[in-house]
Design a protein around this nucleic acid. Structure first.
Lengths: 122, 122
DNA sequence: CGATTGCGTCAGTCATCACTAACGTTAGCG
DNA sequence: CGCTAACGTTAGTGATGACTGACGCAATCG
């Protein structure tokens, strides 16, 4: 099982999205802009931290590909970018499928106790 | 849209799972034990960090409900726990759905330019 | 019984990160 | 032009967290 450069890039994208989502405030922001497009100031008004902090969170989310920015005069409007979650959903689905498969194999082996062995799948 | 204690617990669970998955090494460990059940030592042998570090990662994953531990003699066998990902998958699906919906509404408003207004959905 | 194997836990270190205050920048108004 | 509004950016700080070495503990072997 080799890991090609495409996997690495997918991993990097997943890693950035995951790190971005691991912060509660960023998830809250993402929930806001998932519901409707909002300006930076409107987003900041929803929280009790500085606009600076919110701005930095927005940068992280944008870099991770989870939101998009659109300028309108002096304002900057943000909205969620659903495709940014695709890699993550793929990752979770794969993990879920293989975990469930392993659990099934283990349950079956325990029921039969045939000493199956599972001779080093990898 | 009120937030009940059940939502808070769901958020807490999602938060722990997310924080656990935000670490590349922990994802690698999870991928290993998703494929087959492994002992702590076998897992540690796959990486170039100390067994201590791996053990702490396993603790985090276990606390987050992403893996289960089973003792066999002096060994401890770990495997992925698929249900641990359920909350996260729900979160991502919800986010994806509302993001897509908002994107559609925005695209439609721009096409028609009817000055729809979107009078404060929340 | 003592020795070894297979782990987890504790204490300490270094890097990362979320946050704030101050400053820089661009768009509109008089 | 100057002035304000709405932002992003930079420098610095405190807390979190990933890691290592030393130690502790249960299970097995002689």
């Amino acid at each position: 099982m080799e890991r090609g450069p495409r996997d690495d890039r997918a991993e990097a994208a997943t890693d950035e999205a995951l790190r971005a989502l691991a912060e509660p405030r960023r998830r809250a922001i993402l929930r806001l802009v998932a519901r409707r497009e909002l300006a930076a100031g409107e987003i900041a008004a929803e929280f009790e931290v500085t606009r600076t902090a919110v701005s930095q969170h927005l940068t992280v989310l944008k870099t991770a590909g989870l939101i998009t920015e659109r300028r309108e005069g002096t304002r900057r409007l943000y909205r969620a970018r659903p495709e940014g979650l695709d890699g993550l959903r793929q990752f979770l689905d794969d993990m879920w499928a293989s975990s469930l498969d392993t659990a099934r194999r283990l349950a079956e082996a325990e029921r039969g106790l045939t000493g199956d062995g599972l001779p080093a799948t990898g």
